[in-house]
């Protein structure tokens, strides 16, 4: 683990957790840094909805295949285990877990992943979701990385409580609901932009995020304005 990179990442994350940050944008940054700093091949943040269903809030790649791999874990997999038990689930070699999670291991293998970690997102006595890290090659994880990964999961939890729209509410339920709804909004905007521009879902996401950043706007505000056609958004469509 590169100490300088570690320090830089936490400074960057803290910097982004200021008054007017956008939750989805922030969580995407966090998953990107999981990939860069922890040597993961892919990362995702999953939150449980009111029915206890795990839903993807952010992923280091928005392609359908990766999102499906996260969603699949509503039936079986390390994320579900971490969410249900509130404990870390570390799997250095997925092939050894084929009996435990046959569908998940097969799908992960097909996507080129050999090892996985799931870190619970805990808030007081409750587990609200999990941070999921995928690694291409099996092998033992660096013991130094484990607490860092858990710290990143904790930062993701904190960011939920810091959303602007929830400033009026201290009710966890309501904050989760707001978070899940902003993810739905982003998916709708991705679909519209992908179809309009004939690009894929990952490109649609990065285009929307790039536009929001370049114009110093919140991602969800841009997504909303784009869906509603309520303002011109010059330069978003080429």
């Amino acid at each position: 683990m590169n100490q300088q990179l570690l320090a830089k990442t936490f400074v960057e994350l803290a910097d982004n957790l200021v008054a007017d940050f956008d939750l989805i944008d922030f969580l995407r940054l966090l998953t990107d840094r999981c990939v860069g700093m922890l040597g993961a091949s892919a990362a995702g943040v999953l939150l449980a909805d009111r029915d206890g269903e795990l839903r993807v809030m952010a992923a280091s790649d928005e392609q359908v295949r990766l999102l499906e791999l996260f969603q699949l874990q509503n039936d079986e997999g390390p994320c579900l285990a971490a969410f249900r038990t509130g404990a870390q689930v570390i799997v250095p070699d997925l092939t050894r877990e084929i009996d435990r999670w046959p569908r998940f291991v097969t799908a992960a293998h097909r996507s080129g992943f050999g090892a996985v970690q799931a870190l619970p997102m805990r808030l007081r006595d409750e587990t609200v979701g999990a941070l999921n890290l995928f690694h291409a090659t099996p092998g033992p994880f660096d013991p130094v990385d484990a607490p860092v990964a858990q710290a990143l999961a904790d930062v993701a939890t904190i960011s939920l409580l810091q959303q602007r729209s929830s400033a009026r509410s201290t009710v966890l339920n309501e904050q989760l609901q707001t978070a899940l709804n902003s993810r739905v909004l982003i998916e709708q905007a991705k679909g519209k932009l992908a179809e309009r521009q004939n690009i894929d879902m990952e490109q649609a996401f990065t285009t929307l995020r790039g536009y929001a950043r370049a114009h110093n706007r919140r991602l969800s505000d841009v997504a909303r304005a784009f869906i509603d056609d309520s303002e011109p958004l010059p330069g978003l469509l080429v």
Binding site: D49, K190, G191, E195
Partner: peptide
């Protein structure tokens, strides 16, 4: 929940 439902709605 399926993200595809929201994406398809946007499409």
């Amino acid at each position: 929940y399926r993200a595809e439902i929201d994406q398809a709605t946007g499409i």
